[in-house]
Design a protein around this nucleic acid. Structure first.
Lengths: 135, 135
DNA sequence: CTGTATCCACCTCGATACTG
DNA sequence: CAGTATCGAGGTGGATACAG
């Protein structure tokens, strides 16, 4: 019997939507670069390779766990490369790949819009909050 | 006594970093557009104004709560406008503002990079996962 | 039609401790 | 030096019920 309740229809729609979003390239990209540490790491590496400890110092607020985790995911995505020098102590360098470098102009665009328009956004927020407060 | 432990120093650095990120325009922008429903709503409105119920249908997977919440935050940011027609039943239209329209080219850029390069990213992921699995 | 209010399952992230 | 393992607090978002 194909009779379904409204709730079931909504649930089905939500599932289909999740499936769509999971394979949507733009969605995947946004999920990647919107991560708190991703743009910071990529920007830090834009000037050249860095060691793990260098990154840790440059990005002062990051925990070991998140730094490692983020680096791994970026390596998995082919945006940066990880090279181990088996000395004692071991040395690990991270470097942008060619693919990773193609991402930098996009990040610059985002930065550009933000620097041009975020003052307007913040002004709009203030207006909105003032009106709400006086209500 | 300015003597602090390493843990205290890390904590202080993390706090400063949070403060920096909270005021960083690019960070704010990324936080805004990386929201699951924001780009979908903005894209839906790019063709012209829509009513609440239209949006609800166009973006099939969204819950009432998230649709309202996201619309409110976008209105607060000045990216779209909300106009109420006090008929019975009440009618509410949402429309991109000029500021909101300036965001569309950026979204197009993101979509462009994604469509051009996400196949490479997915290929890199497959390679990485294969190597890991065979380890 | 257009919301608001509440509850809760889930998941992410940071802190901490430990290792080759 | 460069990680890994584990745990718990906190926030997010969906389902549901209700309202102007």
């Amino acid at each position: 019997m194909p009779t379904r309740t409204a709730a079931q229809l909504r649930e089905e729609a939500a599932r289909k939507y999740d499936a769509f979003l999971a394979t949507c390239p733009a969605r995947q990209l946004l999920d990647r670069i919107s991560d708190k540490w991703v743009t910071l790491i990529l920007s830090a590496l834009a000037d050249g390779p860095l060691r793990y400890s260098d990154l840790s110092r440059r990005i002062a607020g990051v925990s070991q766990k998140m730094l490692t985790q983020t680096l791994r995911s970026l390596e998995r995505d082919g945006l940066l490369s990880r090279s181990v020098t088996p000395s004692v102590p071991v040395r690990v360098d991270y470097e942008l790949t060619t693919l990773g470098e193609t991402l930098m102009p996009l990040i610059a665009s985002i930065k550009g819009w933000a620097e041009t328009h975020m003052t307007e956004v913040n002004a709009a927020r203030s207006r909105y909050d003032d009106v709400s407060a006086s209500a």
